[in-house]
Design a protein around this nucleic acid. Structure first.
Length: 885
RNA sequence: GGGAGCUUAGCUCAGCUGGUUUAGAGCAUCUGCCUUACAAGCAGAGGGUCGGGGGUUCGAGCCCCUCAGCUCCCACCA
């Protein structure tokens, strides 16, 4: 019935269906302690990648463990409409069909977008199920659902009414191909080999022909095509070279516009010529200078990157074409001093790969400084804890220097800004058209105004403006934006959530803003702990990405190694905040562990138990030992979890299961071939195995459920998922140390057997000088095939192999098998080692400063080391003498 | 340019308040074994002057200074 190799495929499918059927993932408020986690919502039309795998494996481990600790665990899943990413995909799809976005009405385009969402949306959630994610699917949320959208709009209105939302002109990243603004996150900077052009700007009023003097200045620029937008030239006030320019005017080449010379310390005299052309419409820094000195702003570009009428020259030509042409024409006019090669960083659109154009436009902003205050304090005062804590610094730095948040996007897929412009200018902001109309009539004092007279803002909101409400709105969309509203039962019960697991890249875009939103609309922080995962990288240390093609397909991995195997692979080396260098070997290790677990089950399942058999001493000792070890491990694992050291917790369990349970415990209690096991040992073993499965379940849910279900009769609906974690009882350290000694003796004897080529079936005698408990003796006799153990005062046997465990000496008489020369060599090496060691201890103890200033226990320890080493040296010397005689 | 972090075995990492013999683990490697749960396994073994240098201390992987290298975040110089 059970093959020696675990095959996960059908088993995973079977149990996921079972869990779903019995609604074991579902949570409703009740009397238990709540434990809620909200998933970082993946893009609705996204596909599972390795980052998701890591992130969701961690969440599932935490959620499943909490559930098994008796808490009411609720993991809320869902997706994000991902405004830009989704719209880009839809535009792309339409383009393939020969349809341009600009040819469609807003409504028609949105219909396409919804169709796309219906078709591809939720694929990623189905993939998460393959991983074993124990989300409450009945609560699946979506940032564009009707309820959720309402909460987003309410929040906008609330902030607007509080005066925390305003409109303003700002430099945005413009994509001339897609004709939309981009967020900073969508701009990728790449090093480009470009040119630095040195242009001559003549001083106004001086005629070059007149005196032949140097009556021009040289300005260096990488973008000569923008000179038509120049409205000043700036120099550093401390720059002696340009003193005489003060108050003068310069002539912009080719168009001969007169612009003032201004002075500002922003200009670096070391760079280029120390003379900067100022183009407020097309450079962020120039814009700031323009504001400071009240310069004119001349926007010389059309939305598609061609030059506009305002440029005066080259109108309608593309910006890069103009760059080439300007170079030629400037040279012809004698205004081009020189051209140098120059490497600089240029921003490219992540979507269309065209260089972005800084462009001024009217946008909506959220005033952040006041909102950020409680959110900053929350993290500084440890109301919200970041793991690892090093991110606290970064967080503070960002929050203390927070800038206003540009929330408008020139996109259609998203929440449309609820602002309506009035015919005579001005605007109203309201949750609905009807309310907007009412407000508009009031404001204009015109009761005849109709909806047709109002024009709603075309832009929609930044995706983060909806996802910052996630931990609130998934429980109660109605409360967001209505601070006076009573929270519903769910929000009251589950909020604040306990853990948030996410990537550090979005600490500011998402995490910080959720904390802000939590304080603003839900009365407090949204989560207690933030676990920041690392980035999944490939073997060369590169970030896994679609464009590099270096990311394995997670579903293919699951099919190859099993979901449990892959989960283990993700967790074996991923401490919080550290990057995870992904290697398929890790999944293989995970799969091998599954197989190990599987085979233990096969072994145990094959045993017969008998009421008449007495419990052998070695089995009694093994049970006593393992129960103590289990309790000790439970404490240590709980400690690991409290510090979010998941991979350490897993490694402890891995070793407990593989080395201690399979390697030692089972080998000891294993009955002789064909013999039954005593009832006592048998039932203890079943109980231990059951506990081990429960401990491992959060990490590897499928195989543990399968085996747990087969371990005993279970009723329909019963599941390890909702069984309780084992809890630690008091244990005896002496039991553990006695067993540790036994293990070392067994290893010592195995080494001798291997060395001397003595098969295990040949039994041996063991002489012991020093402490050796009867319990240890039982274990050693059992595992090392020792026929007789003799306690001796002095070793009288001449031809022995020997070894030491702590201070106890062990001798195995070997008769003629012994090789005197070899044995002596070994003993002499030992002797040399202990003598050297003793020397270092004595040196320490001989230092009066040490004995007087070190704490007593440290000194006592050194003295013990001395005594032990001396005893060992004496013993080895005696053995050497025996060999000689 | 500003900030944060990292450097310990071939690889990935622990090492928590400076003191538990000679710094640990997993994987990988090497050597024996198809021993009736498992070769996706068992038994055994090797492998590190803790990035370099200096200092503080009775004592440093851990604290301080310095140099080198790597990574990330933020802002970007025309």
């Amino acid at each position: 019935m059970f093959s020696s190799v675990y095959s996960p495929v059908e088993i995973e499918e079977k149990w996921y269906a079972y869990w779903t059927k019995h609604r074991l993932f579902h949570s409703e408020p009740d009397g238990r302690e709540p434990y809620a986690v909200v998933i970082p919502p993946p893009n609705v039309t996204g596909v599972l990648h390795m980052g998701h795998m890591l992130n969701n494996t961690i969440q599932d481990v935490l959620v499943r463990r909490a559930r098994m600790l008796g808490k009411n665990a609720c993991w809320v899943p869902g997706t994000d409409h991902a405004s830009i990413a989704t719209e880009a995909k839809v535009v792309e799809k339409l383009a393939r069909e020969g349809v341009k976005k600009t040819d469609l009405s807003r409504e028609a385009f949105l219909e396409h977008a919804w169709e796309w969402t219906r078709k591809h949306g939720g694929i990623i959630l189905e993939q998460l199920k393959r991983l074993g994610a124990s989300c409450d699917w009945e609560r699946t949320a979506f940032t564009m659902s009707e309820d959720y959208s309402r909460s987003v709009i309410r929040v906008f209105v609330d902030l607007y009414n509080q005066g925390k939302i305003y409109r303003g002109v700002r430099m945005v990243n413009w994509d001339p191909q897609a004709k939309t603004a981009l967020s900073d996150e969508e701009v990728v900077y790449r090093e480009q080999q470009g040119k630095l052009y040195y242009l001559r700007y003549c001083v106004s009023g001086s005629s070059p022909a007149a005196g032949g003097e140097r009556d021009y200045v040289v300005v260096a620029t990488t973008r000569p095509e923008t000179i038509f937008g120049d409205t000043a030239v700036c120099v550093n006030p401390n720059d002696e070279r340009y003193r005489q320019l003060k108050g003068k005017k310069l002539i912009v080449p080719l168009i001969n516009r007169e612009v003032p010379v201004i002075e500002d310390e922003y200009v670096d005299p070391e760079f280029g010529t120390g003379c900067l052309k100022v183009t407020p419409a097309h450079d962020v820094n120039d814009y700031m200078l323009g504001e400071k000195y009240g310069l004119e702003v001349i926007d010389i570009f059309n939305d598609d990157g061609t030059l506009s009428e305002k440029a005066q020259l080259y109108v309608g030509q593309d910006r890069f074409e103009v760059r080439r042409q300007v170079e030629v024409d400037l040279a012809a006019a004698g205004l081009l001093e020189k051209v140098e090669d120059y490497a600089n960083k240029v921003g490219f659109s992540e979507r269309t790969s065209v260089p972005i154009e800084p462009k001024l436009s009217m946008q909506w902003f959220v005033r952040m400084s006041e909102l950020a205050e409680p959110a900053l304090a929350a993290v500084m005062d440890d109301d919200v804890l970041l793991y690892p804590p090093k991110f606290k610094n970064t967080y503070r730095h960002w929050m203390e220097n927070i800038k206003d948040w540009c929330i408008s996007r020139q996109l259609w897929w998203g929440h449309r800004i609820p602002a309506w412009y009035l015919p005579q200018g001005g605007l109203v902001v309201a949750e609905t058209e009807e309310e907007a109309l009412a407000l508009a009539r009031e404001k204009t004092k015109n009761p005849c105004l109709t909806l047709a007279d109002l024009r709603q803002d075309e832009d929609c909101l930044d995706t983060w403006f909806s996802s910052w409400l996630w931990p609130v709105s998934v429980f109660d969309p109605n409360v967001a934006g209505h601070p006076e509203a009573d929270p519903n039962n769910d929000l009251q019960y589950y909020y604040p959530t306990v853990d948030l697991v996410t990537a550090p890249e979005i600490l500011f875009f998402w995490v910080a803003r959720m904390i802000i939103a939590g304080y603003e609309w839900a009365g407090g922080y949204p989560f207690k702990n933030v676990y920041l995962t690392g980035i999944v990288r490939d073997k060369q240390g590169r970030k896994m990405s679609k464009s590099l093609g270096n990311s394995p397909d997670p579903i293919a991995l699951i099919e190859k190694y099993g979901a449990d195997g892959v989960r283990l692979g993700m967790l074996l080396t991923s401490p919080a905040g550290n990057d995870l260098p992904f290697n398929e070997n890790l999944c293989e290790q995970g799969r091998n562990f599954c197989n190990k677990i599987w085979n233990v089950f096969r072994l145990i399942k094959g045993w017969e138990s008998s009421d008449t058999e007495p419990q052998p001493e070695h089995a009694r000792v093994a049970v006593e030992w393992f129960l103590s070890l289990l309790c000790k491990t439970l404490l240590s694992v709980a400690d690991d979890f409290s510090k979010y050291r998941l991979s350490e917790a897993l490694m402890e369990l891995y070793k407990l299961y593989w080395d201690e349970f399979s390697g030692w415990y089972l080998e000891i209690i294993k009955p002789q071939q064909g013999q039954a096991m005593d009832r006592k040992t048998y039932s203890s073993t079943i109980a231990i195995f059951d506990a081990m499965l429960r401990l491992l379940h959060p990490f590897m849910p499928f195989i543990t459920e399968e085996l747990w279900q087969n371990l005993a009769e279970r009723k329909d609906g019963e599941s390890i998922m909702v069984a309780l974690q084992p809890f630690a009882q008091e244990f005896d350290e002496d039991v553990l140390s006695r067993f540790e000694q036994a293990k070392q003796v067994v290893s010592g004897i195995r080494s001798i057997r291997k060395d001397k080529n003595i098969p295990n079936r040949e039994s041996l005698k063991l002489l012991v000088r020093g402490d050796f408990s009867p319990e240890a003796e039982a274990i050693v006799s059992r595992l090392a095939n020792i026929s007789q153990v003799l306690a001796v005062e002095e070793n009288t046997e001449k031809q022995c192999a020997s070894f030491l465990v702590k201070t106890t000496e062990f001798y195995v008489p070997l008769g003629s098998l012994i090789n005197v020369a070899e044995e002596r060599k070994k003993l002499e090496a030992d002797l040399a080692y202990f003598k050297k060691f003793l020397g270092s201890v004595l040196a320490k103890l001989g230092n009066e400063k040490f004995t007087t200033s070190a704490p007593e226990n440290v000194v006592a320890l050194e003295r013990k080391k001395q005594r032990d080493a001396e005893a060992k040296i004496a013993s080895i010397e005696e053995q050497l003498k025996n060999l000689d005689s």
